[in-house]
Design a binder for these strands. Structure first.
Length: 739
DNA sequence: TCTGTAGGCGTTTTT
DNA sequence: CGCCTACAGA
């Protein structure tokens, strides 16, 4: 009976994907093909029909939101008893494994998780210790290199061995230094969470065996976005029983820049030669024009498995295209459309999403939405947990839990100012390095050595506060601990004294933090005390939180987010904005074919978020980097078949788009696309100067145009040079060569 | 040691 | 344009 209800309403392919429980299974799930439903029903089927115990299942996703949704839906099918069922993100699953077993790697289970800012701090510290000038050796670049190594599963020793030139060798050595600093701080960065888990499994077969035996059935969502380490992790776990089901869509692979390798999904059938392959090609989400338009765009990719999606939602509005004069007008257009729809048919604002390529683009839309009092929510951008006051408070907690957390100490030791400034900290850092102890211990030594001066007293008082707070930590609940921290540290008092609107907003945020800590406390009562304390669990959750996790589809407001964040979501009406060369495709990706193809897949993902209506917009001019920049329409616009598009324009022939709309377009209606042989911004030789174009500079070398500023003799270009970074140059004097 | 200000630099995308 | 950093002055 349960079996029937779990298969009911599924199409034959979906049904097979649920029923085919044994052995390796690859589900190629096109956009909107009911993938989540298949995954959840499959889990429920395994448990409820096949009788597999909950604890023998592992389901892995990329975001907490996806994991939470899956759990919720499984509980709806089976009842609320899914406690032992492991559904989580790669990161949260690995943290749980490490909390239990990291001891084998001679590390402590009380580790903290370093976020991006923390690890950048460590990189800077490593450069300093090696007497390297951060102006010459860009910390961000080094951080990025290390991250790539970690994503590829390369440990420092291997990186050094493989180094092919001096620079690479230096980076690899610094990577080793960085790693030592992390170990000293008892910290793991994001990459480590995965890498150390794989390391653990490789070096300790007994440990691996335990988990292999435990997880008899493994499911992986968004498999096309896995990187090397994630791939290895899954392979290791699945090796024993080969009951592995992966779900994904090569056309939606959009995380190449963070090490994801689409070959993982393309080679699945090679890895598991007995694999079953099921294609879900029926789209339940979008109308015909939307699906056809999106498919036409991604069909321009060369490296691609052919796939045909079809929908039964025939008819439907054409894709709407609007070319605005500038970014402000683009925002006006979008908001006006929403207001009209809401007035005419009472559309809830929750039906609308504005999707853009980069976070910075949200601004003009926010201003316009504010102007008309339209409720909206921005996903990502400045995140709650990245606000300074929140990070400060968290840093206090981190230092209490882990006294080796140097980055946390650096952050709060003088916040609010208590007379332990830069010079003191520098001396303490030198002392700590010399003795090989954490900064907190270094402070102690420093105070002892320097008698009863002003600084020494300040340090003593700080250490006293730490001692006191640690006692509170042991005795009180999470929200009470936070309250004590804010009180005893003088942090709250300092903000109150400031008495500015900003300070008040910060106080509000801290209040909110305490509220969420209170929620956390009540939600986890009874669960605490086995492997970690409440504060530790809270810190862990905060560290692994992602942008999209806080998004609530039930909220009746317009959603603003990047296309990356929007993956996996759907909206009745989507505005895909800023479709301009240099932005989408982004200037830094349009240089090579691979990068461009990923941008195109990104465009495909964006378009397929729409259920009923899709608006595409671009602007002829926009403020970028504080200056005006002329933009030309994205090449992707030209890849949408013209017959699917309705061109909107409220001006009398002033925009290029309106000219096209009135042009006769009969002869090749089936294959023709919106034609953008834009004639603007050509230089003397008639070559097009626009964002995304690569150039050669006689002194700075090769680079990519970021923005075109002004026209004529005073025209300037903002260019990112490979060697020297971003520079603005005068076209007239720079003697640039294109290409 | 702290605070204010000038200059420089940046925007991909994120667990 | 805004944020962050470096530097100068109190």
């Amino acid at each position: 009976m349960l079996a029937e209800s779990l298969l009911e309403g599924l199409n034959p392919e979906q049904r097979r994907a649920v029923e085919c429980t044994e052995g390796p299974l690859l589900v190629l799930a096109g956009a909107g093909s009911g993938k989540t439903r298949v995954l959840t029903n499959r889990i429920a089927y395994l448990i409820g029909v096949c009788g597999i115990p909950l604890e023998n299942l592992l389901a892995v996703t990329f975001t907490n939101k996806a994991a939470g949704e899956m759990r919720e839906r499984v509980e709806k099918l089976l009842g609320p008893r899914s406690g032992d069922l492991w559904i989580g993100t790669f990161h949260s699953v690995c943290v749980r494994i490490l909390r239990r077993d990291i001891g084998h790697l001679e590390r402590s289970r009380g580790f903290v998780i370093y976020d991006d800012a923390d690890s950048l701090g460590v990189v800077k510290d490593v450069l300093k210790r090696n007497n390297l000038d951060p102006k010459v050796h860009d910390p961000k670049r080094l951080r990025w290199r290390i991250d790539q190594w970690k994503n590829a599963g390369v440990l420092p020793a291997e990186a050094e061995k493989k180094a092919y030139d001096i620079d690479e060798e230096l980076c690899a050595r610094l990577y080793a230094g960085y790693q030592r600093r992390l170990v000293d701080a008892n910290a793991l960065d994001f990459g480590d969470i995965l890498l150390q888990t794989v390391e653990l499994f490789k070096r300790f077969p007994k440990v691996l065996e335990y988990y292999q035996r435990r997880w008899q059935y493994i499911l992986v969502d968004e498999y096309q976005d896995t990187n090397r380490v994630q791939y290895e992790l899954i392979s290791l776990l699945a090796r024993a029983h080969r009951n592995i089901c992966v779900v994904g869509d090569p056309d939606q692979s959009i995380y190449g820049w963070r090490g994801a390798d689409v070959r993982n999904i393309l080679d699945f059938e090679k890895d598991y030669d007995e694999a079953e392959v099921i294609k879900l090609e029926r789209n339940y989400r979008s109308t015909q024009p939307i699906l056809s338009g999106a498919s036409a765009v991604v069909a321009n990719n060369f490296e691609r498995k052919r796939k045909k999606l079809f929908t039964e939602r025939e008819g439907g509005d054409p894709i709407q295209f609007y070319e605005a004069l500038d970014d402000r007008e683009e925002a006006q257009f979008v908001v006006r459309k929403m207001l009209v729809a809401s007035r005419n048919d009472g559309s809830s604002f929750g039906r609308f999403a504005i999707l853009y390529r980069t976070n910075a683009q949200s601004r003009s839309f926010e201003e316009e939405l504010l102007k008309y009092d339209v409720p909206y929510k921005v996903v990502g951008g400045v995140r709650f947990y990245e606000r300074a006051e929140i990070k400060d408070t968290i840093a206090y907690l981190r230092l209490l839990v882990n006294q080796q957390d140097d980055q946390a100490l650096i952050r709060i030791v003088n916040k609010p100012s208590r007379g332990i400034g830069k010079t003191t900290l520098e001396r303490v850092a030198a002392l700590s390095a010399e003795r090989g102890v954490p900064l907190l211990e270094g402070l102690r030594l420093h105070a002892e050595a320097s008698g009863s001066g002003r600084t020494a007293n300040a340090i003593r008082s700080f250490l006293g506060m730490q001692q006191e707070l640690r006692e509170v930590l042991a005795a009180r609940s999470l929200d009470q601990v936070i309250d004590h921290v804010l009180e005893r540290s003088g942090y709250r008092a300092a903000l109150v004294k400031e008495a500015t609107p900003e300070a008040e907003a910060r106080l509000d945020n801290l209040q909110e933090l305490m509220a969420s800590a209170g929620d956390f406390h009540s939600a986890n009562e009874g669960l605490i005390g086995e492997d970690s304390s409440e504060v530790e669990l809270f810190l862990e959750q905060v560290a692994l939180i992602s942008d999209i996790d806080g998004w609530d589809e039930r909220a009746e407001c317009v959603s603003l987010m990047t296309v990356h964040s929007a993956k996996g979501l759907e909206f009745p009406v989507v505005f895909l904005v800023g479709l301009e060369e240099g932005i989408f495709p982004h200037a830094s990706s349009s240089g090579d074919a691979e990068g461009l193809e990923e941008e195109r897949r990104l465009c495909y993902v964006a378009m397929t978020r729409a259920m009923e209506q899709l608006y595409l917009t671009c602007a002829g001019e926009r403020r970028r980097f504080g200056a005006r920049s002329f933009q030309s329409p994205s090449r992707f616009l030209g890849e949408v078949p013209e017959k699917l598009v309705e061109v909107l324009s409220d001006r009398h022939g002033r925009s290029r788009a309106s000219r096209h709309s009135s042009a006769p377009s009969d002869d090749i209606a089936d294959t023709s696309s919106l034609d953008y042989s834009y004639s603007q911004d050509a230089n003397e030789d008639g070559q097009v100067v626009q964002p995304g174009v690569s150039v050669q500079h006689p002194v700075f070398g090769s680079g990519v145009i970021l923005a075109v500023i002004g026209t004529g003799l005073s025209q300037k270009l903002k260019i990112r040079f490979k060697r020297v970074g971003v520079k603005t140059v005068m076209v007239r004097y720079a003697n640039l060569e294109l290409g």
